[in-house]
Structure formats: structure tokens, C-alpha cells
């Protein structure tokens, strides 16, 4: 009974509804984008009314918010953080730097496209994106979670070799761990 397809569908709908309304964000504040998070969370824009609140550690978080550019040094840490998070997990690329490098497009030590290294579910563009844009990004994420299309983590598992190869190109010393999903 429990395992047949229709009841699974109902369970999925309820779970996606809960996931949509309870988004715990781990803001990985590497770039300048981190300065836009406090106004988003505090009294003017109040993201908590949408169920968005900060998580203290990657273990508790649902969403990894990569705010701004990633240098090759920080990419290593952000990969570790992403792999410590528990399923279901989503990534938001925040600012132009995660899409095409932004103002660091010709820098020798920043990555240009985050999606080559981690599976990004939603991009928020702009330099800087204002809190309205951040809230719109969260709204988009809620939309695709509700529709069940936020499957970045699954994509990461399916294409692990490709992602790992890309990561190793940037960080030759990256220690790959054994995974037993």
C-alpha cells in the first residue's frame, strides 16, 4: 500500500510543501554578496516570514548560498561544505560572479562558472543583487521545489565523475573521498 506509486506521489507533494516552506540557508559568505544577507533577514525585508532562516552548520542546512566570487582556495572549502550537507540540498548561485565571473572575468585565481563544480539550482544575477532580487530567487527556488524539479543533488550524484574531474582541474591536491550513497 505504502509503496505504490500514487501514495508515494501524495507523500512527495506533502514533503515538497514542507521543504518549500522551511528553507534553512547556509550563507557561504566568501564574496561581497554576504553584505546583502543581513538586510534580507532583518526587519525591512524579513525573509523569515517565508520560512527562510539561517542555519549555523552545513549539517543542518538545506540551501547553500554561494554569495559572490569563489577563488580556487575557497572552492575547495565550498565543495567540502556542500558534501557535508544532508539530502535534499539545493544550491543558489548569488551574483554575477557565479555565472560568468562578473568583474573578475579575467582573474587568474577565481572560477568563472559555478555550475561546472557544483550543481546550481537557482541563479540570482546582479552585481549586487538587491534584497528584492534575493527574495525573488528564494521564491523561484520554492517554486521549483514544489514542482519537484530542484534535483541538483541528484545531478551531482549521477555525474560525479564529471564534477570531480572539473574540480581536480582547478585544485590538483583535492582529496577525493569514497562515497557510498
Amino acid at each position: 500500500m505504502i509503496n505504490d506509486k500514487n501514495s508515494q506521489k501524495i507523500v512527495d507533494i506533502i514533503q515538497n510543501w514542507a521543504r518549500k516552506h522551511s528553507i534553512w540557508v547556509l550563507a557561504y559568505g566568501t564574496g561581497c554578496g554576504a553584505i546583502e544577507i543581513p538586510p534580507t533577514m532583518t526587519s525591512r525585508y524579513d525573509a523569515e516570514r517565508l520560512g527562510v532562516r539561517g542555519a549555523a552548520t552545513p549539517r543542518q542546512a538545506d540551501v547553500l548560498l554561494v554569495t559572490g566570487y569563489l577563488t580556487t582556495k575557497t572552492l575547495k572549502r565550498v565543495i567540502r561544505v556542500y558534501e557535508q550537507m544532508q539530502d535534499p540540498k539545493f544550491v543558489i548561485g548569488f551574483g554575477s560572479c557565479t555565472i560568468n565571473g562578473g568583474m573578475y572575468y579575467d582573474s587568474y585565481n577565481t572560477i568563472k562558472l559555478l555550475d561546472k563544480y557544483l550543481p546550481v539550482d537557482v541563479y540570482i544575477n546582479g552585481c549586487m543583487p538587491r534584497p528584492e532580487a534575493v527574495l525573488a530567487g528564494f521564491g523561484k527556488l520554492q517554486e521549483i521545489i514544489a514542482e519537484g524539479r530542484a534535483n541538483g543533488a541528484q545531478k551531482y550524484k549521477d555525474n560525479l565523475e564529471w564534477y570531480k574531474a572539473n574540480q581536480k582541474k582547478i585544485i590538483p591536491s583535492l582529496l577525493t573521498t569514497d562515497y557510498n550513497w
Binding site: 506533502i14 514542507a18 521543504r19 538545506d62 544532508q86 539530502d87 535534499p88
Partner: peptide, 8 residues
Amino acid sequence: YKLFGKTT
């Protein structure tokens, strides 16, 4: 409910 639905 969401926390209960997460994998550990």
C-alpha cells in the same frame, strides 16, 4: 516535518 524527511 522537513527535518524528519531529511536523510541522515
